[in-house]
Amino acid sequence: MASEFDLIARHFTPAAPASDAGVALGVGDDCALLSPRAGQRLAVSVDTSVADVHFPAEAPAEAIGHRALAVSLSDLAAMGAEARWCLMALAMNEPDEAWIADYARGFHRLCATTGTALVGGDVTCGTLSIGVTVMGEVPPELALTRSGASVGELIAVTGSLGGGAGGLALWQRGERDLAHPLLTRYLRPQPRLAAGQALRGLATAAIDISDGLLADLEHVLEASGVGARLDPSALPLAEGLVMALGDDAARRAALAGGDDYELLVTLPAAQLATARQRLADIGLALSVVGEVSETPGIAGVEASDVRGWQHFAPPFVGGAPGPGRRP
């Protein structure tokens, strides 16, 4: 049986990084030695993905590898940061070489497409779970945070919403056509790194939509000391969502289903045209869904809708379930 060191050597030791990757010492030692660029601030985030909580254990291993990295990179996107490096810790019950090879392929492929160097981590025995720490760089004066929203600014979202929750609902019904757009959104989310960088200097606050639009908007409102008025009719729904869930459940999925990994931003109305053009240049839409207000809370939606993914709360009842939660 292969040891964890064999597995790391075979599957998680990338080829020597490019000379401009900022990696002085990578996988294989007690620590990685990294060289951030001059004048940049380091952005760091960590996420843990647990089987049958954040992803189905029986999902394709390649998709699990992609997804584990994508959800962490989404946090860098929300800060307007450029991805540079990551660490990955994998726990699994037994060393299934074929599964690990597929998992590693999905992980490494997203590393390559996002310019992220895997520089270390761990492989150990335990319940299937993955911890990914990502590190990126952002100019200090351009970092996007949750605390900059002001009264009168617009609230906007990138891309479309509800696809993650819709894909989970289909998976739970037994749908296994991985080409279905909703399953693609759920199993292989795309971190909006280019969008976060494009919105530097335009957006005043930002967050990635992981726990649901309403729950994540509440984080921005609390950090900024403001409220919001939403227009649910303006929500950009994911392709196939209404057909899969019906009108009401589709709206709930977009509001509170989570797992979309789009960006929610606030910005002055005067910056909207420029922001839309920058995102159009990378093939992404920006939809206005509300306005920042002075009154605390979120107006325009029912109180029962203001609920996103919470690990230690009861399951969602009705509409779309929370991310990864098995009803």
Rank of each mutant, 00 (worst) to 15 (best):
V138L: 09
V288M: 04
V226I: 12
H11I: 01
A81V: 02
G300P: 03
L76F: 11
S147T: 14
V157C: 12
D208P: 04
V50P: 01
A83F: 03
S210Y: 03
G300S: 08
A234F: 07
G164L: 07
S224V: 08
V46K: 07
P323A: 09
H311N: 06
L221W: 01
E175N: 14
A205V: 05
R192N: 09
V53I: 13
D247R: 15
G283Y: 06
L230S: 02
L90E: 00
G22R: 11
S304R: 12
F107N: 00
A165F: 08
G136A: 13
L193Q: 09
D177R: 14
D208V: 04
R192T: 08
A32V: 11
G257N: 01
G308W: 02
V288Q: 03
G240I: 12
A285L: 11
A179M: 05
I130R: 01
P189N: 03
A15W: 04
P323W: 01
H54T: 01
V292N: 00
M92A: 14
I282S: 07
I282V: 13
A149Q: 10
D96R: 04
T13N: 05
V220Y: 03
A280Q: 13
E137C: 07
L202I: 07
R278D: 08
L168G: 09
L202D: 00
A244H: 06
G322W: 05
D52R: 04
A61D: 04
L69Y: 03
W99T: 00
S19K: 12
L221N: 01
P236F: 10
V53E: 10
G212H: 07
Q172Y: 05
E137W: 05
G227P: 14
A280M: 07
Q271C: 12
R188Y: 08
G152L: 10
A285Y: 03
P36R: 12
S45H: 15
A228S: 13
V23C: 10
A89Y: 00
T116V: 15
A249W: 00
Q40Y: 08
A194R: 15
D47Q: 14
V301K: 05
L286I: 13
G290E: 09
P95H: 04
L235R: 06
T274W: 00
A9I: 04
L245H: 06
H311M: 10
E82A: 12
A156K: 04
L182H: 06
A269D: 12
A228V: 12
E4K: 00
G212A: 09
V151H: 05
T127S: 12
L237A: 02
S293V: 07
L199S: 07
S304N: 07
R37N: 06
G166Y: 02
V289M: 04
L33A: 07
P321F: 09
R307V: 06
D177P: 02
L34T: 00
A38M: 09
G240E: 14
P321N: 13
A273W: 05
L42D: 05
E62R: 12
G240R: 14
R326C: 15
D211F: 07
V265H: 01
V288I: 04
E94T: 01
P191K: 10
D216E: 15
A249N: 06
P268I: 11
A98S: 12
R10K: 14
A320E: 09
A83C: 11
A280R: 13
L187P: 00
V306G: 03
A299V: 09
D208I: 01
G196I: 06
D281Y: 06
L284T: 14
P56V: 15
E294S: 15
D177G: 10
S287H: 15
T158K: 07
D20G: 05
